[in-house]
Simulated scan of single mutants.
Amino acid sequence: MIQTVPIGSVANAAVERLLDRAFGRDRHLRTAYRLRAGTHAIPALSFALVEDGNVLGSIQCWPVRLDGDDGVVHPLVLVGPVAIVPERQQEGLGRRLMEAALAAAADGPPLVLIGDPEYYGRFFGFDAAATAAWRLPGPVERHRLLARGAGVPDGAGVLGPRATASAAA
């Protein structure tokens, strides 16, 4: 039976191996890694899927912020990576992880992710409507920078790490 557990209950090394398998060892070069540099995943919003002691998948959520060009700082939560072992992809496990994270984040700040707009829009309500003028610390395909939630900032600014955050923020 597959169990959804807090990510802190599984070995960090097992999560790192999973991420390497799912995204490759060069994954640290991606813009999403720059967005969360110097932060720690939010424990209450990060989960793993475990079956018979094996980690099948994980989702992590990170404290980030948009420093608006108008001087307003907007706390946000970066969702991802969502990783599933390659041999179990297409079984709905990623969706199960997203649903767990979204339920846990329901009362928190708006969410942002870099991902497929058709998938994340259709199933989870993410879109790029407010993110067109956001600047990131690396390249991104603009249509893949997605957000959702009440209060998504709709203006220009720099998206980057938020060094301090409570589990709910």
Rank of each mutant, 00 (worst) to 15 (best):
residue 134 W to R: 06
residue 141 E to H: 14
residue 136 L to Q: 15
residue 138 G to H: 10
residue 130 A to F: 04
residue 100 A to Q: 07
residue 130 A to R: 14
residue 148 R to D: 03
residue 125 G to Q: 12
residue 137 P to C: 08
residue 140 V to Q: 12
residue 133 A to N: 08
residue 157 G to W: 04
residue 122 R to C: 02
residue 127 D to I: 07
residue 154 D to I: 00
residue 145 L to E: 10
residue 140 V to W: 08
residue 134 W to N: 08
residue 139 P to W: 13
residue 120 Y to K: 03
residue 131 T to S: 15
residue 106 A to S: 14
residue 158 V to P: 02
residue 138 G to D: 06
residue 115 G to Y: 11
residue 139 P to Q: 14
residue 146 L to I: 04
residue 114 I to P: 05
residue 133 A to F: 03
residue 134 W to L: 09
residue 128 A to F: 03
residue 135 R to A: 13
residue 151 G to K: 00
residue 109 P to R: 02
residue 148 R to N: 07
residue 149 G to I: 00
residue 102 L to D: 10
residue 127 D to K: 14
residue 114 I to R: 13
residue 100 A to R: 12
residue 110 P to F: 03
residue 140 V to Y: 07
residue 108 G to R: 11
residue 156 A to P: 15
residue 123 F to N: 05
residue 114 I to V: 15
residue 150 A to Q: 08
residue 100 A to H: 05
residue 144 R to I: 05
residue 127 D to L: 11
residue 158 V to E: 15
residue 104 A to C: 02
residue 121 G to K: 03
residue 124 F to Q: 07
residue 118 E to C: 00
residue 152 V to L: 02
residue 107 D to C: 07
residue 155 G to F: 00
residue 105 A to G: 05
residue 152 V to K: 02
residue 151 G to N: 02
residue 140 V to G: 09
residue 132 A to E: 13
residue 112 V to L: 10
residue 157 G to Q: 12
residue 124 F to G: 07
residue 157 G to D: 13
residue 150 A to N: 03
residue 129 A to T: 13
residue 152 V to S: 05
residue 152 V to P: 01
residue 109 P to H: 04
residue 107 D to K: 15
residue 132 A to Q: 14
residue 121 G to Y: 01
residue 147 A to F: 05
residue 126 F to H: 04
residue 143 H to S: 15
residue 139 P to R: 15
residue 146 L to G: 04
residue 106 A to N: 05
residue 139 P to M: 13
residue 138 G to A: 03
residue 153 P to S: 11
residue 133 A to I: 05
residue 146 L to C: 06
residue 146 L to D: 06
residue 116 D to T: 05
residue 156 A to C: 10
residue 117 P to G: 13
residue 106 A to T: 09
residue 104 A to H: 06
residue 115 G to F: 11
residue 145 L to M: 14
residue 104 A to T: 03
residue 137 P to V: 04
residue 121 G to C: 01
residue 102 L to K: 07
